[in-house]
Design a protein around this nucleic acid. Sequence first.
DNA 1: TATTGTTATACTCTATAACTATA
DNA 2: TATAGTTATAGAGTATAACAATA
Lengths: 156, 156
Amino acid sequence: MTTKVADLAHRLRPLVFRLYYLVRRETPQVQLTLTQGSVLSELLNGGPRRMSTLADLERVRMPTMTDVVRRLERLGLVSRRPDPADGRAVLVEVTEVGQRFHRQLIVAREEFLRERLLELDEHDRTAIEAALPALTKLLRQEIQEDKKEELIRDER
Amino acid sequence: MTTKVADLAHRLRPLVFRLYYLVRRETPQVQLTLTQGSVLSELLNGGPRRMSTLADLERVRMPTMTDVVRRLERLGLVSRRPDPADGRAVLVEVTEVGQRFHRQLIVAREEFLRERLLELDEHDRTAIEAALPALTKLLRQEIQEDKKEELIRDER
DNA sequence: TATTGTTATACTCTATAACTATA
DNA sequence: TATAGTTATAGAGTATAACAATA
């Protein structure tokens, strides 16, 4: 069982890349990468976020997120402003252009997935749908694991 | 339903990165990236492969695969040899060192996933297990889709 | 002194275009 | 002429180390 899950995680890499290839093809106005799209979604679902929070959520280091946000800013999709609560911190938020663009992203993604899912039989579609809450839990759990590790690291 | 699947694909990016972060930590002797690990697994499961086949499977262009294989070769994990059936083609295969290393990878991956899965309840584990064949079909289907597109492209 | 974020630097991943060698 | 692969080049993603500004 665990072996199969590991294999799945592996095979998912090409699928995720494929998904973003199609999104890029569908929305030639703005060419988003996987990481950029992921950050944009996070900001749209969760509202303005600090740099450090984004880095944690995407599991990258701060200097990495600095560059990713810089590129999104250059594309006009997000903006930065100082956090009123802490002079050191920076809040990143989605611009109106970013919101419009994200709607196009969602449409392209859904269309792609709907087509593929319709080629599966009813039994398979039901199985995938039933597993979604469990897979979501597995991912959430992971984020909490990371926080724990940081605390341990800090104690050293 | 399709929206949920799209969200899942998105959230899976951090999970996959997290998985490889842990693998790197568990096997400090050789630091494999996600793409390198994916190619190594493919070669171990399917035997020697041509550069073009690897590029298709990973959904990257040939020059990209040239570099990835070069790095794996530099690490001593794979080797190249001419394809006896076609003087232009190159066959990539895993070395003995690569096979030994891959066993470590599998152990680290399985341990990580087993721990996380044990934190889920029986119902969630069953749901994930039941969805694996369907998710696998979804991925296979994708590979076939790509092949079709190439044929269309060639006809132009 | 500790934390948030940026800059500097280096390596990997990725693509397109141009090239070599073989079919 | 067409195909398999490499080289050249450029941009994005990633990390570590050093630094500036604020708490």
